[in-house]
Design a protein around this nucleic acid. Sequence first.
DNA 1: TTTTTTCTGTTGCATAAGTCACATATTATG
DNA 2: CATAATATGTGACTTATGCAACAGAAAAAA
Lengths: 210, 210
Amino acid sequence: MNTNFNIENFIYTFSCDCNKAQKKTFSKNQVITTYIQKRNQLCILLSGNADLVRYDLNGNRTIVEHFSKNAIFGEVFYKVTTNNELLVEARSNCTVLFYTYDQLKKPCTKGCEFHKILAEHLPELILNKITDLNTRIELLTQRSTRDKLLMYFSLISTRKLSKTFELPLSLTDLADYLNVDRSAMMRELKLLKEDKLVDKIGNRIILLYE
Amino acid sequence: MNTNFNIENFIYTFSCDCNKAQKKTFSKNQVITTYIQKRNQLCILLSGNADLVRYDLNGNRTIVEHFSKNAIFGEVFYKVTTNNELLVEARSNCTVLFYTYDQLKKPCTKGCEFHKILAEHLPELILNKITDLNTRIELLTQRSTRDKLLMYFSLISTRKLSKTFELPLSLTDLADYLNVDRSAMMRELKLLKEDKLVDKIGNRIILLYE
DNA sequence: TTTTTTCTGTTGCATAAGTCACATATTATG
DNA sequence: CATAATATGTGACTTATGCAACAGAAAAAA
């Protein structure tokens, strides 16, 4: 999903005269930013994991996107105007770079190394984001809870190169990510076990098919 | 959703020595391309409308994305490997530019105008794509068929700046786009009419709330 | 440690949404 | 124009999923 290029190392190495970007750290469960459609904010996640979470008027919670190292996110990408609350929440301790789109758009007048390297790698980061979003859509357009679970497991499985893996999410979060009711998801999980398609020991998933 | 910049005009104006891009035209319902994960294809829709459509093993059809003028699409953005068939189908007559990602990535050695302008505007096109995808996810994560319909109508309404508008899709396609069963969607549409939230005369939708 | 909070696992019940089937309307096509 | 093909609209029935509620396990906090 993510590039091997390590922006963080580079950030630590180089300093940039013209750089208006802010670097901040967050601890688990802190709110990194809210989407309020004005600042054209663009962020890069240097380390840690975070989620874009939506709370709707009925109190429903949806994990809209999940971000890991090198993910880009922020208001620039989000023109949807509903009344819902959109927060980026840290899942673990995080380091985040804050830009505005304008800062990134125009080339650095001072010709500094920092901007050069960032501009060079931004297209790749963006490309990764698009494939992530497409994968997300693929997941959400699965017809049933069962299909969503199976596809999610399959994605993690290929990422980890193993039919056995730890769930990177709590089951509560997984339900919010797959956009299904938690108890309904638990029921389906049980049925998958009964059908000998999937086994689950604690946090560990074992795919039994193929 | 899309930029005001008109690539097509520009394409007709400039020619490019180094340009390996192919420009092709398609008539309604023709298949523009299939996603087969090898060629790193990247396409720009110069004119017309097209859909990325998925046919799954149960014969279900899903409209994954809808593309209009200046939309970019192609395999580069799509790393999902399911057994499903992924086709881009022309909804109307279309003109499409075909690139590979490699062609776009490296700067033109001949320094021609064509590449310069394209490179200049590509970030904006990509940004638009990301907001489109985020909107798509927002739509798909609506809880109920009713909510999906209401959000879809609201999107078109803001785009058209009017509470009255023609549906740009057939109802059959709309169901495939919202990822719901067609007859269930029809039922919900009837309920929305009964609840005096939405009216529908033929192809025309009238939003009655607010 | 103890206490509190969050997460997991499960149930009964209600209901939204899918399935199938068909009639009519509308749009393509020979 | 006639005929085929596709889209719309609706109803009866089934099923999947959501909802509410609770108990025990695990994790976090005091």
